[in-house]
Simulated scan of single mutants.
Amino acid sequence: MALYKIGDRYPDYKNRYFDGNDLKGTDVYLGNTHDKVGSVHDVLISEAGRIRYLVMAMGSWLGGQKKVLLPIGRCVDAPTESRIYLRDMTQEQVKQLPKYDSDMTVDHDYEERVRDVYREASAETSVPVEMSAPVEGAGVIGLTRPAPAPMAAPAPTPAPAHRPEPVEPEPVYDREPDLYEMRDRDHNRIRLYEERLVADKHREKVGDVRIKKHIVTNEADVSVPVQKEKVVIEVETNLAGGTRVNAPDARIGEGDSREIDVYAERPDIRKETVAYQEVNVRKEVEQDVVTARETVRREELEVDAEGNPAIDDRPNRHPNHLEQR
């Protein structure tokens, strides 16, 4: 299941998740010793938009600026102290967490390595560590504060039978609520979920346009007026009485001739290349509106009461508290 950096998925994440505040940069302390171990570098959310991990940059006193993942279920926020407490972990266990790089893809195998460290830490703790008084009174800046586990038993208190399941279950995370569930047992809050359509857009290549020239042949006719000369010979016969030739050397015989030059125009047909058209190629952006219709669901609260108990139904929202969306 893909995980996303909160700022990449939702640029307005401060208002969407944290009531205008920013969790990044908040110091992280161990809940049992109050030792500072790092600060929040980023937040990872699932495809459904639910916070799954805080990315913590470890302090130099723990071996350098190594980044690790903190499952949200192990994090308790103390708004009055502007810090995050990490439950049930020691410095040595934090050091064992696999390194996280901002450009890496968090796959199932990597998450299993992360979960194994927390599972081992939980197994080593026979009795859950009780959070200190300031942490118990904390009310999470933009996060739901997970309450400390009961002292009498290590197993988490079962959720109320009438608590609705999330509309979009994420089985990988739902199987380990101790690591990923965001809960507020102090008020037995029942979270109601609804589906919303999220409109987004992305740019994708839809095709190629190739422009090239090709030769088209056809038959063309051209007319050229031409002139040509011709020799016209007119012969007059039956002269009256004939014509007397006085030249002493006149005789009948061969050898008397005339030359006349005769000219004619011949057409010169040739081809020449000329530009007949100019083509301008450019791209234009057209605006369009795509409308989608989907069926969305919402959970509503049902209260079953036996007898005549007094029920006070009132809104209850802490100004610094924001439920997971």
Score class of each variant (00 low, 15 high):
residue 3 L to P: 08
residue 10 Y to F: 15
residue 15 N to K: 02
residue 21 N to V: 08
residue 22 D to Q: 08
residue 24 K to R: 15
residue 25 G to C: 02
residue 26 T to Y: 03
residue 27 D to K: 14
residue 30 L to I: 00
residue 34 H to L: 11
residue 35 D to S: 14
residue 35 D to L: 05
residue 39 S to H: 10
residue 44 L to N: 06
residue 47 E to H: 11
residue 47 E to C: 07
residue 48 A to E: 13
residue 50 R to C: 00
residue 50 R to H: 00
residue 52 R to H: 11
residue 52 R to I: 01
residue 53 Y to A: 00
residue 54 L to R: 04
residue 60 S to D: 11
residue 62 L to S: 06
residue 72 I to F: 03
residue 78 A to G: 07
residue 80 T to I: 09
residue 89 M to H: 01
residue 89 M to Y: 05
residue 91 Q to I: 09
residue 96 Q to H: 03
residue 102 S to G: 13
residue 102 S to Q: 13
residue 102 S to T: 13
residue 105 T to R: 10
residue 105 T to N: 04
residue 111 E to V: 11
residue 112 E to K: 14
residue 116 D to I: 06
residue 119 R to S: 09
residue 122 S to R: 15
residue 126 S to V: 08
residue 130 E to V: 14
residue 130 E to M: 15
residue 130 E to W: 13
residue 134 P to V: 09
residue 137 G to C: 07
residue 141 I to S: 05
residue 141 I to N: 05
residue 143 L to C: 00
residue 146 P to V: 08
residue 147 A to L: 04
residue 147 A to C: 02
residue 149 A to S: 12
residue 150 P to L: 09
residue 152 A to H: 11
residue 155 A to G: 12
residue 156 P to T: 04
residue 158 P to G: 12
residue 165 E to G: 01
residue 168 E to D: 13
residue 170 E to H: 12
residue 172 V to D: 07
residue 180 Y to K: 08
residue 186 D to G: 01
residue 186 D to R: 06
residue 188 N to G: 03
residue 190 I to W: 07
residue 192 L to Q: 01
residue 192 L to G: 09
residue 198 V to H: 11
residue 200 D to K: 06
residue 201 K to M: 10
residue 202 H to V: 14
residue 205 K to I: 09
residue 206 V to R: 14
residue 207 G to K: 11
residue 209 V to G: 00
residue 209 V to F: 12
residue 211 I to C: 10
residue 211 I to S: 10
residue 214 H to D: 06
residue 215 I to A: 03
residue 222 V to P: 08
residue 223 S to D: 12
residue 227 Q to Y: 03
residue 228 K to T: 12
residue 229 E to W: 04
residue 231 V to Q: 07
residue 231 V to E: 00
residue 234 E to Y: 02
residue 238 N to D: 15
residue 242 G to F: 11
residue 243 T to E: 12
residue 247 A to G: 07
residue 249 D to Y: 14
residue 249 D to C: 12
residue 249 D to F: 14
residue 251 R to V: 03
residue 256 D to P: 00
residue 258 R to W: 00
residue 263 Y to S: 09
residue 265 E to D: 12
residue 266 R to I: 06
residue 272 E to L: 06
residue 274 V to N: 05
residue 279 V to K: 08
residue 279 V to L: 02
residue 280 N to K: 09
residue 290 V to G: 06
residue 295 T to E: 02
residue 298 R to F: 09
residue 299 E to R: 10
residue 301 L to Y: 05
residue 301 L to K: 08
residue 303 V to Q: 03
residue 303 V to R: 00
residue 303 V to L: 14
residue 304 D to R: 05
residue 311 I to E: 06
residue 312 D to W: 05
residue 318 H to D: 13
residue 319 P to W: 02
residue 322 L to D: 06
residue 322 L to V: 04
residue 323 E to L: 03
residue 324 Q to N: 01
residue 325 R to C: 05
